[in-house]
Design a protein around this nucleic acid. Sequence first.
DNA 1: GTTAGGG
DNA 2: CCCTAAC
Length: 674
Amino acid sequence: MGLKKRLDFGFNGFQVPNIPRAPRSARRGPHRKSVEDGQISAFELLASLAGKLLQESESSASSNASQGNLQPAFGIDVKQERQDEHKPLKEECLDQGSSEESVSLGLTSQNINRKGIIKEFPHADSDTVLERTSVITSSDSSAKAGRHAKSVICSSRPTFQKYSGKVEGDSPGIVESCYGNVATGIEVQGDSKPLETGSLKIANPCSSKDPTELHANYPAMLNGDSNVKLSLLRDPIPNASFSRHRNDIELGSRDDDENFSRCIKPSNRVKAFRPPPRVGGQKIRKLLTSKYWKATPKLREFEHYRYDGGVKTIYHKRKTFYNRERSQRDTLYKRRKLVDRSSVVTSDGGFSGESVSNSPDNGDKTGPAANGVSASVIGHQTSFRSEESHVKLRIKSFRVPELVIEVPETETVGSLKRTVMDAVNAILRDGLSVGVLVQGKNIRDDNRTLMQMGISSKDSLDSLGFMLEPSPVQASAFLCSGDPPFSCEMVARSPGTPVLDSPTSDVLSDIPPITNSGSLAETKHEPVSSHIDILTNKTMLESQALVAIPEMSMEPLAIVPVSQKTKRSELAQRRTRRPFSVSEVEALVTAVEELGTGRWRDVKLRAFENADHRTYVDLKDKWKTLVHTAKISPQQRRGEPVPQELLDRVLAAHSYWCQHQAKQHGKHPALPAF
DNA sequence: GTTAGGG
DNA sequence: CCCTAAC
């Protein structure tokens, strides 16, 4: 049909009613464009600082690591506050530069409160997250808080260390690392030390080509008083765990007991931990504003616990927390049995992981692979069922939930580092579960297989991400109301502390089942404690819906606006990618030649009537990409090559229909014979 | 429900 | 592919 008609309605002979519509774009108002493209948020810089800090302190951690202080201790007050004062915020773009620079951005600005806030958002899309670091400062002007502005603590990877508190602002390079990380999605750990990192891998015996390692690092948990703290899973003897659990998931932290200090109100707490000077005014606020963490004033109650026994409920909660923590670990162990087809090996407690790369070697240049440990572990896995395809991946780092930090402008960089570190530790300690991101979406359905999610050993691994998010239980804890005492408390937990045995649902969501065995179903949704109340439920729901926190409006320094809209993150899952085949392209081209652009529904009906998975929007999008593809050089094209002939037709049809925006007139089946 | 575009 | 504004 096409040819004949084309002849009949040659380009010249085809009269198109000249009623061109203005481009849609012209007709509709310009989109408010996100302002901050290309800018790097300060936050990430800070995050990197934190990471750096952790790394730095790790070196001295080993000594204490084996002492039993394996539990995260921390003393940062995490709480939500609101400020009435309005502070202009500004996001600075830092291409690079020393950490000091970045810090200064956040600290030098003058504002009423003289505070800088650092925020970190965990919920960003994988790509978005990696885009930039934003520095939030109280300074005014060009506050560019793009809707996409998100920061990530690049170096949040856990390290075990002792924090001496003497870190000078010397972290140039952090920025770079962070930046690189951001840009590539691969965490750069230039100075990471093998011992400190752990790796977690899922090896794919069947496809060694694209192995992606799951590289996990465990965050160091330390308490502010300069004592070395715990490490989850840290095994005094680095590879000891390997030998024991070759094919098992080696996650979990030691149950050894630990002391842990907790501070609720920064001011006091800070004092407790650090020497006087500028520490006094530090405040770290953790706003549970992201989808994952909902900020609530009540959060402190959880923190509010004291060992003086004053508040039983709190104590109880805390206990629950521990239990939960424990159960998580237990669950992880249990899980090993469930997932016999996948293997995860960690050399040492690692706890992080965000970027996943499918090119094993690729990560090396950025460092982490550097973590060496992981590398050595590869190929360690054994007994697999050869028939099944496995996905091998390596997690370079984890994204850390949002963190809001407030410190005096007069604060030193070193102090800032500590603050950030404390905040990070606090978060880590508060119980997190791992979220899995596919195509930037948080996959909540633990029962979906990787295959179903479009994650194969061959590709798509780059679209796989991990993040830390508060577990439901934790969320409930944060919702408890109560005013946190401004003090720091040290609490020692005895090793024998009983634990609840109920597994926490989301805890296991970190690693989706490799197969559709659905073996993990049993771990789903079991109440962890009696503390789950209405608020909890609400929280959970909201967290999934990414509800904006009302308090945000009160937060002057919150530069990066928390996504006000409930985005698709964990709602509908992104459809699996289904590249158009050449034949489909041809059908599309033919249909468009005949129907023109602008009538996608008709195109769909005509050429893809039976292709359920192809919506007219898909067709429209495909056409869009085809046009683009046809315009670029063949070398720039990717994916299955489309015959040039088809591309030529695409261009011809495109130009034709663009000139004759005559879609409103019924069928104009013709196209000039090209 | 469709279209057109930006993301 | 998703998301939305504008139809």
